[in-house]
Every structure is written in structure tokens, then in C-alpha cells.
Amino acid sequence: MTTVEQAATSNNLKRETQLSLAWRQFKRHKLAVFGLCVLPIFILVAVFGNWIMPYDPNAVAADGVIGMPQPPSRKHLLGVDLYGRDMVSRLISGAQISLSVGFVSVGIALIIGLILGSLAGFYGGIFDTLITRLADIFLSLPRLFLIMIVNSYLPPNIYNVMVVIGLFSWMNIARLVRGEILKIKTLDYIHASTALGASSGSIILTHMLPNAFAPVIVATTIGIPYAILLESALSFLGLGVMPPQASWGNILYEARQWISVAWWYWVPPGVLISLTVLCFNFIGDGLRDAFDPTLRGK
């Protein structure tokens, strides 16, 4: 076995034990476990939403009433909205949108973050300066306003919302990746790999990124609820997901005219946003504790 292989194997081993350690730590975080139990329900409901929706979420006048939200009844468990659409169906449809905005836009942010972070960390120099400065700027700007401005120039559809949110959320991930790579860059086995002729791409992919795994996973988990909140804020201002497609944010946009008379219109979407975001935050917190060795055993 060459030294390089040995180092890599021990690296893998280390990661495995690290993971099981982390899992043990994670299980102790009661709130995180709560999040991990509740969140799959949301995801399952969203995935199988089209089968379990009692009504077509966009069918106007499912109840024959238009113009006045109707309170919950046996037929419509959470009432109907202004257009006579079944609220349960709309909330399920909203779950699909909100969750996919969360996952996709953070996915985009993750890709950008990984690429920029690796470039900055691995090549350093002008790359590093430019990318870190860029991240600083993006972090210190009022993001919502910029997203609103950019979004107001694009055709308003859900894909643009995802892309724009992604474009404005990569900074933390990039920073973390850069930091990890800087740490590892000086280690001997990387030098050895370079000496043996491994390409920089494969070094980044096989040796460096796996090490950044833990912090990136945490940052991603915390990024998702942030994206969900951003989407709801945008839709609430009428600049996000376009009706009749329901998202929790634009249900609130429609419902805000009715807050004093129709609680079933505005309370459930808010509760659902909060609960989803809460679960992600719990899990994120649990992961952070689990992966942070300084907290271990406390």
C-alpha cells in the first residue's frame, strides 16, 4: 500500500467513525429528532400530493360559492377561499411549491458555492480575493430588495424565483468550502497526490470536497428554510409564484384582505411555513452540534 492509499483509507475510516459519532450525537438532540420525524410527513404529502388532494386545487367554485371565503365544513376541512377553492388541496399544492423552491434554489446555491469555494480555496490569489469580496458584498446587501428588483425584470414564474433565490444564497457555502480546502491544501497527502500526477479536478473532488462535507451539509440544511421564507416573502409582495399556482406565500397574499374575518384562510399557511422552517432549523441545529467536535460530550 502506498502512503497515498493509506492516507486515503484512513481518511475514509475516519469519516465513517465520524459519521456514526455524529449520528449518536444527533440522536441526543431532541428537537432535531422531532424535526426529522415531522419533516418527512411534509415531504411525503408533497410528493404524493396529487393523489391525496381531495379536490383540484385550482378549480374555481368547488363549492359553488365565489366571492366570500367559507369556513371549514365536513366537505372542506379547512374551508374554501375567495374563489371557492378547497383550502386543503391548495395547501398541499403549496407544500409542493414551497418545498421544491427550498430544495432547488438551495441546490443551485450549493453548486455555485462548491464551484466558487473550490476555485477560491484551491487556486488562491486573484480568484480568492475576487470571490471572497463578492461573497462579502452579497452578504452585506439587503438581499430581499435586490431579489425583488431582479425578479421584477424577469417573467414571473416559479423557475425564475428558484434561480434568483439560488443566485443570492451561495455565499455561506462558498466560504465554508474555501475554508476547508485551505485547511487541507497544506497536508502531505495532497502534495503527494499532486506529485503522483493527479489532476487538480480529481484532487478537489476526491480529497477535498468530502472533507468539507459536514459544514456544507449544515449550511445547506439551514439554507433551505431561508429560501422558503424568501419565497414566501416574494410571493407575499406579489412578485413570486404566479397564481393560480398556489404557494404558501401567495395564499397569504390573497388572504391578507380577509385577516379579520376568515382565520382559516390565513392561519394554516402561516403555521405550515413556520412549522416547515422550524423542522429544517431544528435539524440544522442538530447537525451542527453533531458535527462540531468542540461540543461533543458536553
Binding site: 378549480a59 374555481v60 367554485a61 365565489i66 375567495l82 374563489y83 406579489g238 397564481p243 393560480p244 390573497e254
Partner: peptide
């Protein structure tokens, strides 16, 4: 935006 209610019904019809 302020005619959204009209658009919604027309669309459904």
C-alpha cells in the same frame, strides 16, 4: 395585480 380575481375566474372558466 388588482384584477387577479377576474383573471382567476376567467382562467378557470
Amino acid at each position: 395585480p388588482r384584477y387577479q380575481a377576474i383573471g382567476t375566474v376567467v382562467q378557470a372558466n
